[in-house]
Nucleic acid binder design. Structure first.
Lengths: 115, 115
DNA sequence: TCATAATAGTGTACGATGCATAGTATAAGA
DNA sequence: TCTTATACTATGCATCGTACACTATTATGA
């Protein structure tokens, strides 16, 4: 992809990544599994994006975490907190509103399309 | 609004602002009018966000501009370029894809909602 | 008339985020 | 044994949205 488009799409994804991650954490997930889970849903997220995001969300108390060392390999599991669920619901509504507004704008410009 | 929500929604808007602005520039608009036009459509954009955005888009050759000094007050009019329209269409498709994917994810989490 | 608000734009500085990159370490498979 | 997959941490950069400060003209209205 053209570098300019790349940077625009990156900016488009911004913020929605938080939403995507929060949506998956009603059941405990660890970072690496989340990357692949989201990938399957069509949402690519780099490790270098996800791990800091998870730590940030935990610091903000939207998530809690605990290490599981019983399995073959240590994994840090994250779950959404009550507060996190609250924020998530609000954010989800915000996103839906925004999406609807933007949709209206973008449809509005198709009035006398030339193609 | 809670500061945390504020920062999340700011990040959510990111990128979509470019899309919103581009969608309005099939007819020439100047900065100040755009702010109000978008506001009416439910999209709040600060002057301190819009003006730099317009200049950036012009630098990237998605827009062209010219000063109109014939009216009571000098205004800088921007229009989308052919290249800009091209990028806009691509970006719009990107956004639609992303929106659909995210929608699936967000609906997926409503399986056994407790509220 | 003088103050205030609205209009219209520029410039600087800061914080947040996504990502590239590098590094650590273990497990599994060829 | 060598490579690949798994799993996470840490640093640094570029971009963008916004607060804030500033300039300047036009309308409004007390």
């Amino acid at each position: 992809m053209e570098p300019l488009m790349e940077s625009f799409t990156t900016e488009l994804r911004r913020g929605t990544l938080t939403l995507a991650v929060l949506s998956q954490l009603r059941t405990p997930q660890y970072g690496y599994s989340l990357v692949q889970r989201l990938e399957k849903a069509g949402v690519t997220i780099e490790q270098s994006t996800l791990y800091p995001l998870l730590r940030r969300l935990e610091k903000q108390e939207l998530l809690t975490s605990n290490w599981d060392t019983t399995e073959s390999r240590p994994r840090k599991y994250y779950v959404i907190s009550e507060y996190g669920s609250d924020i998530y619901e609000q954010l989800k509504k915000e996103w839906e509103t925004m999406t609807a507004e933007l949709k209206t704008l973008l449809e509005g410009d198709e009035n006398d399309e030339t193609d």
